[in-house]
Design a binder for these strands. Structure first.
Lengths: 240, 240
DNA sequence: CCTGGGTTAATGTATAGACATTATGCGCCA
DNA sequence: TGGCGCATAATGTCTATACATTAACCCAGG
């Protein structure tokens, strides 16, 4: 039995090792933002590998936004920016099941109402309008209102949304090419308060998501979570 | 003058062209999820390039999550997932200025109160406690409450937060290695309502952010936005 | 029928070299 | 002094090749 070292330095490929080395220099402050890092051929010499390998390592760092590469000018350390965060917006059904609770989608009355103005859909297309509540162990977790474009997803008309939530069904059956998420805070109206068992005027987190397949609209969904029991969390970098 | 084609097929490198070709087959449904795509050497033959070039293209697709690569089994089209969304959480000062409005940070009374329990900071460290309101054209835009770890950032004690917001100042002076964002909805209390000129019990979007440099805490900030006028938007894929 | 192990097809990594591309920065010339 | 243009240093791409690694597959043996 070898040493049970928990460290992940088992047998890292060169380009990952080089990447880690550079990353450590940047994050450790040895190479401050704006400074030039050694040229590829210099690093290749230092690490005793070919320039291609160094280039692959630096390309990964450039993709990650840690450095900026410019021909002739060299590679410089990027100024850290709180540009964007990777936010986990999982499928509600999967999230509830993953937490060990029983999941159920309670479907409410639906209609074939016109698509919502917020989604700027053409008013002429045929849509399936769904309303329902996601339940975790029988407790309301989120209220969902969804419009599905029947021109793009005709088989949605025959789907059984009692077994799996509309979101999961769509993920399983319809590939999407673009999506947009919008997060805001709203005050629960009477209907929402009733569905989620909330007091009047409770603050709620509202997630609206639109998805496309190419130029075609697939679905527009508005999910409303109780503000005091749900939050979205995004994390960056190594664990603290 | 050549044809004013808007299409971006000007002079794409081979690996990007190959990537686009594969991507089109996947997104167009010709290669459905779970199906195998041709082996690298086959694609190399088809495109008349080396296997390295094909591999680079497929690696990019694998990084993007469109395909899964497995030795011997080949490369298969991944099942699309709403894994995570890239959310734009820009610096408030930069955001307001970018929108063409006048920015001002109105600093409120501060204290050296103990760090907030929510940030699970040690209670013994010296902190700088800041409170203020971000103003866009004089109108309250967000209420901010911030704690800065003076052990990690001693020069924050002497900084002038009238010129630039605390967030911008920190971004410019302190590199960070990890960050965590938490988004929730809250009901405005009396103080928040007063600062943001909101009616009582208005729903607000609450963004809490913690940043670290290595193992050291840098700052904990809680920003509160009027729920009806602010939202966070994240977009994926090509523009609609 | 099941199990084990070897074969082998596919990806993963790496190299040395070549040429393309680009913008920096210096020198030349007006 | 000023501006123009070219040499050059750096990254960007690509090739042909080599070997490592992995796991699907198949077949022999129980």
């Amino acid at each position: 039995m070898t040493a049970p070292v928990a460290a992940p330095l088992r047998k890292m490929p060169s380009y990952q090792l080089i990447r880690s080395e550079i990353e450590a220099n940047i994050l450790g402050g040895i190479w401050p933002p704006g400074s030039r890092i050694p040229a590829e051929h210099q690093l290749a010499g230092k690490f005793g590998c070919s320039r291609m390998t160094v280039s692959k390592a630096i390309s990964a760092l450039a993709d990650a936004g840690l450095v900026l590469r410019r021909k002739r000018a060299g590679t410089i350390v990027a100024r850290p920016r709180m540009h964007s965060a990777v936010l986990d917006i999982p499928d509600i059904q999967a999230e509830i099941i993953a937490s060990g609770k029983a999941y159920r989608f309670m479907r409410l009355r639906e209609s074939t109402a016109a698509p919502p103005t917020a989604a700027d859909w053409p008013t002429t297309i045929a849509v399936l309008h769904l309303r329902g509540v996601h339940l975790a162990n029988g407790v309301p977790f989120a209220f969902e209102q969804r419009w599905i474009n029947l021109a793009t997803v005709p088989m949605a008309a025959d789907a059984d949304f009692a077994a799996s939530s509309p979101g999961s069904w769509l993920l399983d059956h319809v590939p999407w090419t673009a999506a947009e998420n919008r997060i805001s805070a709203i005050t629960a109206d009477a209907a929402i308060g009733r569905h989620l068992a909330l007091p009047a005027n409770a603050a709620c987190l509202c997630v609206e998501r639109r998805t496309w397949r190419g130029a075609d609209h697939i679905t527009f969904v508005r999910q409303i979570f109780p503000g005091d029991t749900y939050d979205l969390t995004a994390r960056f970098g190594p664990p603290a």
